[in-house]
Structures are given as C-alpha cells and as structure tokens.
C-alpha cells in the first residue's frame, strides 16, 4: 500500500459518501445519473465476485472495503430507482447504457490477461468503470448545470482513479508491478474527467456553480 493508493481509495469512499448524503439529505436525486450508479454497482459486483464465491472471513480491510463499495452502490441505486424515484430525472439521463456495457463486455473477451471467467469479469469491470461516468457527464451537459454538491462528488470520483495512476507509477518504479489493462483503462477514465476538472477548478473552487453553455 502506498500513499497514492490510500488517498485514491479514501477519495473513492468520499465520493460514494458525498453522493449518498446528497440524496439522503435533500431527499432528491435530481442531477444524478441513475445509469452511472447502476454501472458502478455492476462494476463492483463483477470485480469483487470472489466475495460471493469463496467467502473468506472479513480478516482484512480490503474485504470490508469491497463490501462497503458493493452495499453503498446498491443502496444508492435503491434510493434513486425506488425511494426517491419521483425525483429521478429520467428524461435527461438518456445515454444508452447498452452502448457502454456491450463494447466493454466484447473487449473484455478479446483483450484480457487470461481467458477464464473470473478474469474476464474483472476485465469487463475495469473497462466498464472507465466509461461508467459518461451518462452522468452526459446528463450534466443536457441539463446545462451541476449542483455544487454533485460537482464535489464528481471531483472525488475523478480524483480516485487519477491518484491510482500515481499509485501505478509508484508501483512500477518501486515494485516493478504492472497491470497494463488497469493502467490503460484508468488513464482513459481520468481523461474523460479533464473537461470537468477544468470547470471544477476554475469555477467551483471560487464558489461559482458549474453552468455549461446549454
């Protein structure tokens, strides 16, 4: 474990907590893409499937973190699609998730480390996570604005994988550890946030709200 991965995981936890709090406190999921949250839930379930297969005691924080990620993302989907369904902005959350899921699944079958079920599920999860934020960014471009708390959520969510890139550089240099698939997908994922990062740093940090040219 290194400082980059630690802060990356903390940033990821923060993102999940910020979103949950926003929906729970405001009792509304306006401005939140339900599709993105569904895709994240699928990512966690397919990536941590080992938890369900051979359930090992919660002997380390990693197992606990995996369970937190899965349960928090499923709970977030429950809030969006059931509890606060009335506030779900289905009209603007209109990116076709199939256009992300099918290519990720296809690519996972073509480019993977080993052609076996668990490894392909892990690879699918990595590819899907890289593009899972697109429906959320698409929704913001459609509505033309993002609530400040949603911007903080996106900043934390984007920073997590950006910090992982630093973690991979660190591990390459000090542990000669390379996980090419995760690195390439992580770079693509972080690049997708660049536009948002620019808006966040130039606006939200100064207390302004993000309003995209409609």
């Amino acid at each position: 474990m290194n400082i980059f991965r630690l802060f990356g995981d903390l940033s990821h936890l923060a993102a999940i907590a910020i979103l949950l709090l926003k929906i729970w406190k405001t009792r509304s999921c306006a401005g939140v893409s339900g599709k993105t949250q569904l895709l994240f839930a699928v990512c966690f379930i397919t990536r941590y499937i080992d938890l369900f297969l051979h359930f090992v005691s919660l002997y380390n924080t990693e197992k606990v973190m995996k369970l937190i990620y899965i349960s928090a993302s499923v709970f977030t989907c429950y809030l969006i699609f059931f509890k606060f369904k009335a506030t779900y902005d289905g009209n603007h959350d209109s990116m076709r998730a199939e256009f992300l899921i099918v290519p990720a699944a296809g690519l996972a079958c073509l480019i993977n480390t080993k052609f076996d079920a668990i490894e392909i599920l892990w690879t699918f999860s990595i590819y899907l996570e890289a593009v899972a934020i697109l429906p959320q960014l698409f929704l913001i471009s459609k509505t033309g604005e993002a609530e400040t708390i949603t911007s903080h959520y996106l900043f934390a969510q984007g920073s997590y994988r950006a910090l992982y890139i630093l973690n991979w550089i660190y591990r390459y240099h000090y542990e000669s550890h390379v996980d090419t698939i995760a690195i390439v997908a992580g770079v693509v994922q972080t690049i997708l946030y660049c536009d948002f990062f620019y808006l966040y740093i130039t606006k939200v940090v100064k207390g302004q709200k993000i309003v995209l040219p409609a």
Binding site: R5, D9, H12, E62, T113, W122, V178, D179, A182
Partner: peptide
C-alpha cells in the same frame, strides 16, 4: 507484466 493473476487492488 508480472503474470500474477490475482489483482491486489480495489
């Protein structure tokens, strides 16, 4: 690539 198959990151 170190060839290990389990992925030790979240």
């Amino acid at each position: 690539d170190n060839g290990q198959l389990y992925h030790d990151e979240l």
